[in-house]
Design a protein around this nucleic acid. Structure first.
Lengths: 125, 125
DNA sequence: TCCTACATTGGACAAAGTCCAAGTCAAATG
DNA sequence: CATTTGACTTGGACTTTGTCCAATGTAGGA
């Protein structure tokens, strides 16, 4: 556990928003000025491997990192500004996929992404 | 309707796979050698606007274009090779999101992505 | 035929992320 | 205490994917 990794962990713990790698880097730099982008990427990659954070790629823009890894949830994304909210739908999508639709895949997970316009963007339009 | 657009449409009609923009370009070049990447991007973008094809971005790599736009479906993605299959789960995920979990969003759609390993990759491992 | 509007082209550019050689640091070793 | 070792970090170059733009080509109407 080096200073750099501690800073990255602190940034993610700080608030439960969904930051991009660049945003994590920017906040890490505020605490430890000479931390490099590569280190942030490396550390985020490790945390993903360890299952401590979840990678969310909701659009073609940057991946976002979700520190809320320990409670199953899905995402609600604003198509305009990219804001993300965690949501907890009822039902189990895995159970909804019949065996005949699995094509021999070994299924390891499922992601459910709701898309829409957030209240702020709706008001601005 | 120019020759270039016809070629792009033909490429997508050709097989019901999920091609990346670059793959579409490669196949289009085989039919019309001097078609440019910009034109392929423009044309794909228009087809998406017209609702004739669907843009699928299952990872942070290239977007894929799904010509099967006229029948609701979701996707099953191989985490190793990126192969995509269309699937038709039972149930309606939209109905599974309680009003209290909508945070004032105007919800316009939902994507369901199953992840796993395809039989080919499982055999190769 | 000539004009005009639109499509196409190719290349420059940009964003996000990966890769790598070299530098740094701290702990273990002698 | 000095040295070695190995992991961590750094910065920059590079790649991939996609967008933008000025210049060129082209098709169809006046």
């Amino acid at each position: 556990m080096t200073a750099q990794r501690r800073v990255v962990a602190e940034v993610l713990d700080g608030d439960h928003v969904h930051l991009t790698a660049d945003e994590v880097h920017a906040r890490a730099v505020a605490k430890l000025p000479e931390i490099s982008r590569a280190t942030v990427y490396n550390t985020l990659g490790e945390m993903v491997s360890l299952g401590e954070v979840i990678e969310v790629s909701t659009d073609r823009r940057a991946k976002r990192y979700d520190p809320n890894a320990h409670r199953a949830h899905h995402h609600l994304v604003c198509a305009r500004c990219g804001a993300i909210r965690d949501v907890h739908p009822s039902g189990d999508p895995l159970a909804d996929l019949p065996a005949g639709e699995r094509f021999g895949f070994t299924i390891s997970g499922v992601e459910l992404t709701y898309r829409g316009i957030c209240p702020d963007c709706a008001a601005a339009a």
